[in-house]
Structure formats: C-alpha cells, structure tokens
Design a protein around this nucleic acid. Sequence first.
DNA 1: ATCCGCCTCCGCCGGACGGGGGAGGACGGC
DNA 2: GCCGTCCTCCCCCGTCCGGCGGAGGCGGAT
Lengths: 220, 220
Amino acid sequence: MTRPAPIRVVLADDERMVRTALRAILSAEPDLEVVGEAATGAEAVSVVRDLRPDVVLMDVRMPEVDGIRATEQILATVDEPPRIVVVTTFENDSYVYDALRAGAAGFLLKRADADALVQAVRLVARSDSLLFPAAVRTLATEHARAHPAPPEWAAKLTGREREVLRHMAEGLTNAEIARRMEVGPATVKSHVAAVLAKTGTRDRTQAVIAAYEAAFLNAG
Amino acid sequence: MTRPAPIRVVLADDERMVRTALRAILSAEPDLEVVGEAATGAEAVSVVRDLRPDVVLMDVRMPEVDGIRATEQILATVDEPPRIVVVTTFENDSYVYDALRAGAAGFLLKRADADALVQAVRLVARSDSLLFPAAVRTLATEHARAHPAPPEWAAKLTGREREVLRHMAEGLTNAEIARRMEVGPATVKSHVAAVLAKTGTRDRTQAVIAAYEAAFLNAG
DNA sequence: ATCCGCCTCCGCCGGACGGGGGAGGACGGC
DNA sequence: GCCGTCCTCCCCCGTCCGGCGGAGGCGGAT
C-alpha cells in the first residue's frame, strides 16, 4: 500500500499561538502537511499563490484584509484554488453567511477538538460531500419564506396582466405603465382591474403586497 | 491506548443493494459499527427508537414515509436523537433545503466515495464543526437579499410613522388605519405624508415597496 | 364556422389619495 | 422658561384610482 501525497495545508491566523496549536495538531497526522502560514489576509493570498496548498484554514478576523476578503481574492485570482475553510468562534456569527457567499468550502468552530479538525480537513480536501450546522438552519427557513408555493392566481394571470403587475410592483402609475408598455391608459386600467380581481385584492397596493408575498418578482 | 466505543450507525434506504454496499464500506472501519437497517421511513423511526444509534444515514426517497418526515419524527420523538445524515443524489435537490429544515445534521451525495463517506460519519458523530456545498451558497445570497442594511430613512421615522407604514404594508386604507390606531383620518394622512417624504416615495404603493425591499417588516 | 379568451380601448362616476397650508397640545432637553 | 419634536387634527383642491358597463378585433380551439 503506497502512501498517497499528503494534504497540503496553509494556516492563516493573526495569532501566532493559534497557528502553532493548529500546526501541532495537523502535523501529528501523517497524511497532513502544514506547508505555510500567514498572519494577515494579504499575506494569506500571496502565500497561497506561491505554495498552492490543498486546504486553507482561514481565520475571519485578521488585520488589513479579513478572512472573507482574502477568501474572495484567492478564489478569484488563483486557478485551481484550494478549498478554504473559514474558522470562526461563534456559530451564529454573521461572518458565516459572508464566508459562504465568498465561496468558502466550509467553516469550523474554534472550539472544535483536534479530532474534528483533522477530519474536517480531510473531508474538505476530497470534498463534494458535505454537512451543516445550526446556523444554516435559519437559512433554510428563510429559503422557505422566499420561495413559497406559487399561489393559485399566479397561473391565472395572462401575460399582459403579469407585465402590468410587475410594473405596479415597481411603483409605477397607470399612466406610466401605459407609456412603458406603449398602450393606452385605459388598457392598463383593464389589466389592473383583471389583476385585482384575480388576486382577490381591492387596490394596487394590496396587489403589490400579494406579489411580494408570493415572491412573484423572482419568477419570470 | 484503549479502544473507544465504536460509532453506532443505522442505515435507512429502500434498496437492499445500497444498504449492503454502505454496510460493507462502514464495517471495514474498526471504529464504525452498523447496528441496524431500515427499508422505509416508518421502519427507520422504530429502528432508531430501539437501537439508539449515534448516526443515521437516511435516504430521501423511501416508500410510505420519506426520509425528511422520518428525520422530523425521529428528532421530535426520540430524546438524545442521533445525528441524521440525509443521503441524496443531486446537490441541488430541493430535498436539501427540506432536510436542513427538518433538522438533519448534514447530507451526503450518493456519488461520494467510500473515504468521504466514513469521514463524514466520523465527523458528524462528534460534530459541532461543519462544512458546506454549493447548494447552500444560494441560501447565503438569499440571506443577503432578505437582510439588507437598513436604509437611512428607517432611523428617521418616528414611532407613529413606523406604525402607519406597517399598516400601509398590510394593504389598509387611511380610514382603516385610522380606526386601527384609534385616531382621526386626518392624523393618518399627516403620518402618511411624513412617511412619503422621509422614504422619498410619492405614493403609498412605492412606500410599501420600499418597506418590503428594506425588509422593514422583519424588524420591530 | 363558431365560440371563447385575450388584448385593446372608450366614458362616467364616486371615492380615495396626496399636496399645501395651518394649528393646538404634550413632552423633554437646554 | 423656551425651543424642538412628535402627535393630533382641520381645511381645500386637483389628481389618480378603481368599479361599472360596453365594444371591437384577433387568434386558437372544437
């Protein structure tokens, strides 16, 4: 059984002690190799560019350039970028969301024990398969709110009526909508009336509310 | 060095072949022990209740009760419930969101290789620390949309004006708001006018749109 | 060939809305 | 005590909105 190439790891954290501790933990594993360290976000970017590691453990709070920006920069400028694991202290830290958006492959809590740490590094190195924490759960519920089952009336609206509703939801008056759609104001009034009837609302404000609640603007 | 207790795993999948394959992979690891199997969601619930495993690998698609419901039921009815890893085929499967909401500790792709599988089980068993896939990234961007920085005008609104705006966003007319707030219609008009001025909008519809865009209704 | 849905318009009307004033009272800070 | 802010309410007026009824054309379905 030949020994495969070790997983090359870079540590980015402004506190030397943290880096030392992480290095000690990871170096104890034969399949992990800490190839570099960085104390700032900017340094992290250049170190990664030079050493091309497989995994980066990136602290969020760092001087000059924080971990989020560093992550963005690495993913944007390095080709075949490493998997970046953002390290944070609190699970509900808003940095978590930023990290996800920035393209982090995952994140770790600082209180994670040594075992979890090395397993996380291994997993993310060969990743594809993934896992989640409580913080993300709130995201899922938000997602549910943002994507409700499209209400019955959505299907009943004709093309023109949809257009008009979309324009209403932009805050346009009937006259403006008429100009925008290159039709007469009376035509717009007809469509508006149809929209109100089909949505079961009594005025344009309620119709716009219904559109927002149905996340109508996301579709089509 | 004493051997710690193995991680007890239950497999829930309606296809026998899949269960056999998973069992083969996991049993090869000395620290993992497959203690039970289930072919349906309902069976999974009772098996978990009896065997109290540390981790459950739960397929999403199963006869009778699907994996999501089974997950919900287990987490709701079993105390000290196991970590449940939902197994799915496609990363963008909408089941992923449902799984998160249901309280799954994570999810795995069926195409994950054996190594990733066992590492995921180990990680989730001692979890707390976690990682993410591309699917969740969309959640993060949604989160950003749902929680924009509160606009400047939000701070300028007086208490009454906030109230009025909230009622406007419910689709009430000035007269209705007046009744609701137990003040005169003229008072409501004043507040509405103030809201329009401060939000920089010209009519109630635009004000309501501004409120929605600012996620004004979430706050306060 | 006929019917039905959709799009396009018209006029009329009452009511709601928004703009422009102004005014009085309560409350708290300076 | 004075001033500023907020809440309360009043007037008038022009505009826009929504409800109602009607109408013509056009294209697809049957």
